[in-house]
Design a protein around this nucleic acid. Structure first.
Lengths: 352, 352
DNA sequence: TCGAACCCTGACACCGGTGTCATAATGTCG
DNA sequence: CGACATTATGACACCGGTGTCAGGGTTCGA
């Protein structure tokens, strides 16, 4: 059968088989790089692929193999830049492996979460799930997914002590370094604004702050610590308290850049010069950190890399569990990437 | 057959049919709300759905109907907040109709675009496409999709003179209003920073600026107009030129908030007080507009609504073209939503 | 009372791939 | 050289739904 005889009809595995003069099963073998196909046959089929411009139908394939080639990325994160970076890393890995990415924003709080996820699983027949903060350490969710036997990977989770895929950055170390920077500049009264309690990063960053103080023999002062929730607003509230303390701290380390930006705004409104009158540091290296004046000293995490790695390993696991039927979990996979300190204009030695 | 006899097996249409004592075709009829099912039968089946907790498999359904229930959202936009707002609107509409959303960032420039899209269509078997700026007015892409007979909807397109689905906001009017506000505050030398030439919004906003000047009998001065590209950096460059003009304009209207923020940063670095020494206005109401000090006067577009509407109508069209086989395009659908002026602290009367 | 029109319903093929197994062809070893 | 293992291939059922069509039961008009 010649190509033009097909006359623009949909190209299916049957057309290819007919064109190449083999059975559709053989075409399928070539498609999936299965062994036991002679070189000459394989080449005939590959030639047919090219000449017919054939693309296998992922839906049919999915039906036959009970797979959707779709993974979903769960998030409930206030930071747009964080989300888009997550997505971009996840997409890169998905494309590499021929998967598609579904994004699924949903709320951490509320009874409905598990139902919501269950419905997502039911209706989309996902092959796997990527948990991003604050879901990465949601014990109920993790237990639920284990019970349902749904492959998943966690991004920026704290808990390293289990057998699932998890990629994180070293938040504790980052916070340590930024605090140490302030200390070495000569600051002693360093205020700290905590993040959202649901995020495990919150505790990590706080720990880094405390460890740096301790290491440098500076007493921890509870009065300098405010509760925030990563939002700009919460930063603004905390700033009001912190900037009116007596004596006023000479530096503020906020757990993310939005809160740091809010502190900067509040300080500017109070006619405090940054960094002369007060130093400010953030975390995350969000775009705003370099879009304001002065630019924020902060910590850059390799968010794209984290997600890319997580998704990549997730897909590997999916593919593996597909071929081997034995349920040996191919071992845990825990990766920790380093974060990078970025110095901008918002930090300097205190003017005595 | 009783439910517990099924003993946790996968619930398929066959199980339901057996449980309800009807054929799978009848179950399928109930699933799709087809006519010609007696009330008693329908209820039996519905009862089986509930008791077995049945969810139809979208993949099998997709194979049979040659549909994927997936639409993709194309974008190449520098603004993270714009992207996430687009996504959130698109997701809302998708969920409402049982569709899934694929996100597909890609580059406008470069020969590879059409190939890229073609591959996306081939491998994902999308049911439709949402074009967001700057793709909304990409003539080649639009022609390509028409030729391929791929349903699509455009968000924030300028061209209203054709038969496809298109939802936009009135950028020209928004720019007019913000310029008018500045004029009414007493400004006469109002600088303007253009956006990216690939985006149709760029021209719209510029037109609004010029119309307001004209309407208020203020001569247009070419020296006050800078070329930008919506990025923070381009705003910073333009700011350098504008802020050093002699005489210096008393107000700057940037085509988006990032560029406006860059102007604000540059002005602050030059020890100019905003808004006392110079007023600054932006466009889009990006988060940064309220995260910096002073907050930016800007225009808020209903981005979520635009995308939601676009996707909603797109899905309607997909569903319709599925049932009716006649290719009558159900009429063009052009919607224009209004944008809203948001006054913050960055604009005031000029201090003479 | 009988055929026509209509409403329900199910048998069966089909969507486009993959899995299982039988079979033929080839290779290997005692 | 015969018994057996291995490789290459295709026939066929199957994944879980939907489309087509035929047949049995009702209703209706003549």
């Amino acid at each position: 059968m010649r190509k033009d005889q097909l006359n623009m009809k949909k190209i299916t595995i049957n057309s290819v088989a007919a064109y190449a003069g083999v059975s559709k099963k053989t075409v399928s073998r070539v498609l999936n790089n299965e062994p036991n196909v002679s070189d000459t046959t394989r080449e005939k089929v590959l030639k047919a692929f090219k000449e017919l411009d054939y693309t296998p139908n992922p839906i049919a394939r999915g039906l036959a193999r009970n797979r959707s080639f779709i993974i979903a990325c769960l998030y409930d994160n206030p930071s747009k830049s964080y989300i888009t970076r997550l997505q971009s890393g996840a997409l890169a890995a998905c494309h590499e492996h021929g998967f598609n990415l579904l994004i699924h924003p949903c709320e951490l709080r509320g009874e409905a979460l598990l139902e919501n996820i269950e419905q997502l699983l039911q209706t989309s027949r996902l092959d796997g799930l990527v948990l991003t903060p604050p879901f990465s350490d949601h014990a109920d969710l993790v237990a639920f997914l284990r019970r349902k036997n749904v492959p998943f990977a966690r991004v920026a989770s704290v808990k390293l002590d289990d057998e699932s895929i998890s990629v994180r950055s070293n938040d504790e170390q980052g916070a340590y370094e930024i605090t140490e920077l302030l200390i070495e500049l000569g600051h002693k009264d360093i205020a700290f604004i905590k993040g959202h309690p649901d995020h495990s990063a919150t505790e990590q960053r706080f720990n880094g702050y405390r460890r740096a103080l301790e290491q440098h023999h500076i007493a921890y002062q509870e009065r300098l610590v405010e509760e925030g929730n990563f939002s700009y607003h919460s930063g603004a509230d905390s700033a009001q308290t912190i900037l009116h303390l007596e004596p006023r701290p000479t530096a503020v380390f906020a757990s993310n850049d939005y809160m740091a930006a809010a502190v900067l705004k509040a300080a500017t409104q109070m006619d405090l010069k940054v960094p002369d009158d007060i130093s400010i540091a953030g975390f995350d290296n969000a775009p705003i950190a370099r879009h304001i004046w002065p630019g924020l000293t902060t910590i850059a995490q390799p968010v794209e890399d984290m997600t890319r790695l997580a998704v990549s390993h997730l897909i590997e696991q999916i593919n593996k569990s597909d071929s081997e039927e034995n349920e040996e979990d191919s071992g845990p996979l825990q990766i920790t990437l380093e974060a990078e300190l970025i110095c901008r204009e918002s930090t300097a030695a205190p003017k005595i």
